[in-house]
Amino acid sequence: MKILESSPGRYDMGIRILTLGRLDGVYDRLTAYIIKGQKVLDIGCGSGALTLRAAQKNAKVKGIDINPLMLEIAQNRANEAGLTQNIELCEMGVAELGSEESESYDVVMSGLCFSELSEDELGFTLKEAKRILKIGGFLLIADEVRPKNIFKRIVNWLIKIPLVIITYLIAQTTTNSVRNLPERVEEAGLQIESVRFNKMGNFIELVARRPEETTK
């Protein structure tokens, strides 16, 4: 989804077209886990799709992102929706999660951001997510993944080629669909609650919890 970020102003419309509007359903299902008054962290909040949903439910949301232009859009949308009192936006990357307090969040969520992280960042983020989550707190992820099935992987690849080329030409990057996300979440010591793939096997909705037994 890098290609859209190069012009944050058009990001929201672009993402709606590319995902055929299905992302809304996914985000609604994930944010259903959030209840009033909870403390929520949105990693790579971008223009605030997840952040606003959570704030609407009267949760206290902190959205972090490294792209100041995206954050500006998120801030504007928060203002328009009159949700500023529930939303705090911060220009910071996942690498700075160390500054967040341990066991301080009820929910940590992230939409389409993990696929933009490097290997190291991904491992670090999962580890930190576990640390900052309260016991029993939820980790909610929606992202592009690499299909497990080799056949689907090839089809997926063929469909994506034009997009990948354009992305490369414009933004000089590619998104690396995440591999083995559920396994990596478990490795980080979180407990999978539910995993849902789309038909193509290239998009995941994952819900995990910080389990009981990890308390010291």
Binding site: E96, S118, D120, E121
Partner: peptide, 9 residues
């Protein structure tokens, strides 16, 4: 951000 990232992760 890129420098911070590699130092921390």
């Amino acid at each position: 951000h890129d420098v911070v990232s590699v130092l921390k992760t």
